[in-house]
């Protein structure tokens, strides 16, 4: 299983590829003047991605549903955030809700 040279190549390509994807935006935008409307669209794109990440990481696990405890925790955190509760409370309440439900045997 541990083919070290192959592992090193795979890690190297993943690192270079990931850095290139991160660097592409800053590199491109330093060459072109981006109009205001396009900037708004790019900001919206980041929000759309982050929101989709919230939904998939809250509700799914691999290719299936995530159970009950995790979505419940995120829901509690989300409601608190919506009511403008302090950030620390949002995070701790989300984790505590999921942990407590699991302690009670909820998946």
């Amino acid at each position: 299983m541990n083919n070290t040279p192959l592992l090193l190549v795979a890690i190297g390509v993943l690192a270079v590829g990931t850095f290139s994807m991160r660097f592409a935006g800053p590199a491109l935008r330093s060459r072109f003047e981006v109009p205001e409307r396009a900037q708004q669209l790019l900001a919206a794109a980041a929000i759309v991605l982050l929101t989709a990440l919230v939904a998939t990481s809250a509700l799914t696990d691999g290719h299936g549903p995530a159970g009950v405890a995790r979505p419940a925790g995120v829901l509690v955190g989300g409601i608190l955030a919506w009511r403008k509760a302090p950030f620390v409370l949002v995070v701790v309440a989300a984790a505590a809700t999921a942990a407590a439900l699991r302690l009670l045997g909820v998946p």
Binding site: V74, G77, V90, T97, A98
Partner: peptide, 28 residues
């Protein structure tokens, strides 16, 4: 420890202000 619920909640709390904009919210 429920950390798997904490991370989506972190991101959700941070994007919520931007989602008050109707057009962004629809797209999201």
């Amino acid at each position: 420890f429920g950390l798997d619920a904490a991370f989506p909640a972190v991101l959700l709390a941070l994007v919520l202000p931007a989602l008050r904009d109707r057009s962004t919210r629809t797209a999201a």
